[in-house]
Design a protein around this nucleic acid. Structure first.
Lengths: 236, 236
DNA sequence: ACCTGAACACCGTTCAAGT
DNA sequence: ACCTGAACACCGTTCAAGT
């Protein structure tokens, strides 16, 4: 009668750091950040906590490794050949991260945590390098590399995370609630804010309705890119 | 002999949601996110967990209230009279948040968590409204309000958070480690990355050395503002 | 209405013991 | 070298009982 969730049989393959990280990612995707515990993880891997601690120092390191693995996979898809428009390279990287965060909603919070708890860890440099190469390909002079790359990085992480939050919220409202319905709900909620305290937000509420979020995300990228071009007189 | 930490005597003032939130902020500032527990909080307030749960639904709500309180205070300082250069309004708001995150480093992670866990909560609209008003004052046409405001908001939160992380890391390295020394350490670490995998980051490492972070932060703001101007032909 | 504090279920982590 | 699993300290939360 005891319900066997997943693969709780005796394990055949040997344990390894990669298998543990892989299981952690699957668990994060399936049950979210709060659902990943050493209990659920050991059950899934059919082992004990001590075995996991043999391969991984602690939970923080495990979350870091899971984050890095997903980010690395997302950035690896980046097309090698540069397209005719140099800005398409950045758009591709940005959309890759956008999709990854949407597919793994826990990624948004984890990226913020990783970057702010250990900026010297593997995640931050990986992101910085990938985005930075596209900035360089854009023809930005070296003096502007740091500013342009970090502006793009912060916008991408923030906007994609915000968007994943919207997707999650829509799911919470009901499994059949789609994005349009949710944006409609947000729009309506904003329109009901106090007119004295929130005149701007109320005024903008209507714009949110009917917006395609991917398009909106790219509009933000283009805005930052316009700033890069304006300040650095890139490819005239 | 028992060490009485802080004000663990019998409490005189009545408990209230505000007093609880205030104590939570003080505790977060003093001992960080992990140090705030219902144990430490009840000790500081000389009460029991049940008393706190009478005023606050759960820990998440408490963290949300603490975040909102600090953000509201930071944004309230915003100067009422608009200066001659319209961009100074945005710079003032941005620096206000920058300073708040630096003073309360837990704010960076919490802002990300709050915005991504409950975008309908008080924090996100408050930020959006305050930044948005400055965008409007800039003369941006209504069609661009949403894109411009969210681009600025995401850059501000990301860059200020990144910076707070640097400050914290410097403190971890040693109490007498100042920012210049830390940036030097980061610069050196980046220069030692694999040349094949991180050519861009290595090339930019030298720029990081000797940069003033506040100046760097404002450079990013100006980059996004340049994008706003370029795309919307604002106050040409 | 507001507060007390013991109790509960659960968490991350450790470690002596096995192979 | 790698894994087991009981045990530990601690956490957020509940709730019957008090005032």
């Amino acid at each position: 009668m005891a319900t066997r969730t997943g693969r709780s049989q005796r394990r055949t393959e040997a344990l390894s750091r990669e298998r543990i990280v892989e299981a952690a990612v699957e668990l994060l995707d399936a049950v979210g950040e709060d659902g990943l515990t050493f209990r659920t993880l050991t059950e899934r891997l059919a082992t004990g906590p001590g075995a996991i601690y043999w391969h991984v120092a602690n939970k923080g390191e495990l979350l870091g490794a899971a984050t890095d693995a997903v980010v690395a996979a997302a950035l690896a898809v980046e097309p090698a050949g540069s397209p005719d428009a140099p800005q398409d390279g950045i758009r591709a990287v940005a959309l890759g991260l956008f999709d990854a965060i949407e597919e793994h909603p826990w990624l948004a919070t984890q990226l913020a945590t990783q970057i702010s708890h250990s900026p010297w860890g593997p995640v931050a440099p990986r992101l910085f390098e990938t985005i930075g190469r596209q900035v360089r390909a854009l023809g930005v002079p070296e003096a502007g590399w740091f500013t342009a790359t970090s502006a793009l990085m912060h916008y991408i992480l923030g906007a994609a995370g915000q968007n994943a939050a919207n997707t999650m919220s829509a799911r919470t409202l009901g499994p059949d609630t789609d994005r349009a319905q949710f944006l409609d709900a947000v729009s309506t909620a904003w329109e009901q804010l106090d007119p004295d305290d929130y005149p701007f937000t109320r005024a903008v509420a209507d714009q949110v309705r009917g917006h395609d979020d991917r398009e909106q995300f790219l509009a933000g990228i283009d805005l930052v890119l316009a700033g890069v071009t304006a300040l650095h007189l890139t490819n005239g």
